[in-house]
């Protein structure tokens, strides 16, 4: 399941993020790449434990927790501290798959990367190229979203960032472990939740059908969840 969520950050928050990012020091993006990815990765990142990345990362996590659509689609258990990157002209990230397990630096926390997230912080007209391209079995999806929007997709897919040919593409990216490991099960829960939310608006949340469906939803999570 690939899902785009608009306006996780408002334009105003995006501007604040961009200002902090503009004044921060950058390092080679290969610092967080595995051995295969480091061969195809060419960009800059905010240092993982630098103040800028940590502060913006925390703010972003708060914004994610406040997005019902994100929570419903991801059902997150553990979220990796968000990273921030910059692709200038000539930068790109060739086809790769994300590492299955990621340790959070200087903590005993390890995350199975079920889902990958890219949150765009540059508007599409600010740069040429730089599309996020995600492959599935029948073809590929190309994404270039508005600043403040994010895309959530299974980490199992091969993906790349096209070379930037003009301007600069700034983004945040991170991984998460979902309470629901299986993509099929998670997609099913998302559909069920979305139908319930819509029915609750139409019929009222206390409608017996909504109450019964909500019980089915929670019991499915109980059946499948890791907590």
């Amino acid at each position: 399941m690939l899902i785009c969520i608009p306006e996780v950050l408002s334009k105003q928050r995006v501007a604040q993020f961009r200002e902090v990012i503009a004044n921060a020091d950058w390092e080679d993006g290969r610092s967080t790449a595995g051995s295969q990815s480091s061969l195809v990765k060419n960009n800059l990142q905010l240092p993982q434990d630098g103040r800028a990345a940590r502060e913006l990362g925390d703010e972003l996590l708060d914004a994610l927790a406040a997005s019902p659509l994100f929570v419903s689609a991801a059902l997150p258990l553990k979220i990796f501290p968000p990273l921030f990157n910059r692709y200038g002209a000539g930068h790109g990230f060739g086809l790769h798959v994300d590492n299955a397990i990621r340790g959070v630096p200087r903590t005993p926390v390890r995350i199975r990367t079920d889902l990958s997230v890219t949150l765009f912080l540059s508007e599409p007209e600010e740069y040429d190229g730089g599309e996020l391209v995600i492959e599935d079995r029948v073809g590929q999806q190309e994404l270039k979203l508005a600043a403040g929007d994010l895309v959530l997709y299974p980490s199992t897919s091969l993906h790349l960032v096209r070379e930037v040919t003009r301007g600069e593409r700034i983004a945040s990216f991170f991984w998460l472990q979902s309470m629901i490991r299986d993509n099929v099960a998670r997609a099913l829960l998302f559909d069920l939740d979305q139908a319930i939310q819509s029915l609750a608006t139409r019929l009222g949340p206390a409608d017996p059908a909504c109450v019964r469906l909500t019980a089915v939803y929670h019991n499915l999570i109980r059946t499948w969840a890791e907590a």
């Binding site: 017996p208 059908a209 019964r212 019980a215 089915v216 019991n219 059946t223």
Partner: peptide, 19 residues
């Protein structure tokens, strides 16, 4: 448990269909 869940879901759908 799985069967009960599916049965509950179906009952909800059948209940909502006439409405």
């Amino acid at each position: 448990e799985a069967r009960s869940l599916i049965c509950d879901l179906d009952a909800s759908i059948q209940g909502l269909a006439p409405r």
